[in-house]
């Protein structure tokens, strides 16, 4: 179980995250939604260890991981598919995927995981030898997802995976995320695409200006009048 306890994160003097608490149970899929600038990406950077909080804790399976370095957090199985993909464009698709299993434990299983990823994302196998930068946006997103899977994650965190994708590709991608969840991986999905994200999730959190404005079962949130009004325009 991943728990965030009363987290405060600053950028300079600006308080971006103001007392966020949340938890993700094993095997669960949660969606964190909120508008631009609500602090979603900052929260994820803090979970991944790229950013250190002012106060508060992040606990993974009873261990305080708040101050661990990013590689230690990846080694614990908490892996991020970052916003904007952040691929290595001059390297081939396969090399990108292989770097997903850079750490020791994942490297041991590299061959099997790669097979599994290609099975799940067959398009990537066809493009294995192409530079990742030459692929279309949708395919690049698949590479980023595949690269995240290569780390053998226990929790896979997606930061705005639908950004820049056509509605059709968005559906395909959400379908892949659902498959990943069904295979037993805990999923945290961060999205601006509120309706899609909440439809797939078990539970949801709404982040507004650095704090959790609403939380609960995803299906309840979808029925929430306030949320409907501010995010779904209904």
């Amino acid at each position: 179980m991943l728990t965030v306890e009363d987290l405060y994160v600053n950028y300079g003097t600006l308080q971006i995250i103001q007392g966020v608490s949340m938890k993700i149970e094993d095997g669960e899929m949660i969606s964190l939604v909120g508008s631009n600038g609500a602090g979603k990406t900052t929260l994820l950077k803090t979970i991944s260890g790229l950013k250190k909080p002012e106060s508060g804790k992040i606990i993974w399976d009873g261990e305080d991981i708040t101050t661990l370095s990013p590689d230690k957090i990846v080694a614990r199985g908490i892996v991020q598919v970052p916003e904007g993909r952040k691929l290595f464009p001059q390297m081939t698709v396969q090399e990108n995927l292989e770097l997903g299993s850079f750490l020791k434990e994942a490297k041991k299983k590299r061959k099997d995981t790669l097979e599994y990823v290609y099975e799940m994302l067959p398009d990537l196998q066809k493009k294995a030898k192409m530079p990742a930068g030459s692929l279309s946006g949708g395919q690049q997103q698949m590479v980023a997802i595949g690269r995240g899977m290569m780390a053998c994650p226990k929790v896979l965190i997606f930061d705005e995976p639908s950004i820049g994708l056509s509605p059709l590709l968005t559906d395909i991608m959400f379908e892949i995320i659902r498959k990943i969840k069904d295979s037993g991986t805990t999923v945290m999905l961060v999205e601006q695409n509120v309706q899609n994200a909440l439809r797939m999730a078990d539970r949801g959190y709404v982040l507004e200006q650095g704090h959790i404005a609403m939380e609960g079962k995803a299906s309840d949130l979808l029925e929430n009048e306030e949320l409907k009004k501010s995010y779904l325009g209904i």
Binding site: S48, L50, S69, P70, D71, V74, A75, V79, Q80, P82, R85, K86, L87, F88, P89, Q90, M91, E95, E98, L99, G100, F102, L103, A106, K107, R147, A151
Partner: peptide, 23 residues
């Protein structure tokens, strides 16, 4: 080599490399 790939990866995409557990 993996180290070589990690070097190339770091030179073009530092944050992406960090998120893969590359120190």
């Amino acid at each position: 080599t993996d180290i070589g790939h990690a070097i190339s990866a770091t030179s073009v995409q530092r944050e992406g490399a960090t998120l893969m557990g590359i120190k």
